[in-house]
């Protein structure tokens, strides 16, 4: 199983995403923003960072990158695509997911271990969770406030397209506590928090049992393996 991880100029978390793929038992493949070729990968991750310096708008320039032309076509064809943080912003700017992400309501960059509720498990990236499960993974962003038009929010709520909601604390003023979305097919998922930073004991969020032992992010990556076995 080969999972592509795209690097744009200004991407930060591509190596962490590759490591998460490896720990889940798949083979990470580096993809470059200026190449159309996806090198026969079975899924794609758009990692976090500040692609193109967040110029114009977060994710706006990356959404027009050469590699995205292929990824957008492939996503409409069912290729699993996960967008994390800046990757989520890129998916939104590429119109693969609806709405927009704006500066955090409190105007500060925020970095914290964030509790989320899993709202949908019928996707390529969430099928190893249980519905309503509470998970904790790191969140770190300056522009993570999710907004959408009233009719878009109604559609998201009505059609079960919200993948994750913030629990206990809404860290950035996101409408309806939305932390992540899925598309109608379930192959595309985007979220602001970072599952790839919670995949290995010793390096994840604190849990009740031990410091830094949280590995709730690993299920994202094992989910996509399970999805492809079934597909």
């Amino acid at each position: 199983m080969r999972i592509g991880v795209v690097t744009f100029p200004g991407t930060l978390d591509d190596r962490d995403a590759q490591r998460a793929v490896r720990l889940a038992g798949a083979t990470p493949v580096s993809l470059w923003h200026a190449e159309k070729d996806l090198h026969d990968v079975d899924a794609v991750i758009l990692p976090g960072g500040f692609s193109f310096g967040d110029y114009l708008r977060c994710g706006a320039i990356a959404a027009q990158a050469l590699v995205m032309e292929t990824i957008i076509d492939a996503a409409y064809g069912g290729l699993p695509v996960l967008g994390i943080c800046n990757g989520f912003q890129i998916l939104v700017e590429a119109n693969l997911l609806p709405g927009g992400l704006i500066r955090n309501e409190h105007q500060h960059f925020i970095c914290r271990d964030q509790k989320l509720i899993v709202e949908n498990v019928d996707t390529a990236w969430t099928n190893q969770f249980t519905l309503g499960q509470e998970i904790t993974i790191p969140l770190k962003n300056g522009e993570g406030g999710y907004i959408a038009k009233e009719e878009t929010l109604k559609k998201l709520e009505g059609e079960g397209l919200i993948a994750f909601r913030y629990s206990e604390v809404n860290p950035n003023g996101s409408f309806n506590n939305i932390a992540g979305l899925r598309n109608s097919k379930g192959n595309v998922v985007g979220l602001m928090p970072h599952p790839e930073h919670a995949v290995e004991p010793g390096f994840g969020p604190d849990t009740d049992k031990a410091m830094r032992s949280g590995v709730d992010g690993l299920n994202f990556f094992t989910s996509v393996l399970n999805w492809m076995v079934k597909a």
């Binding site: 708008r57 027009q64 709405g99 704006i102 907004i147 959408a148 038009k149």
Partner: peptide, 8 residues
């Protein structure tokens, strides 16, 4: 389509 985002 590019210089602005109609949602924002």
């Amino acid at each position: 389509y590019f210089l602005s985002n109609g949602v924002i």
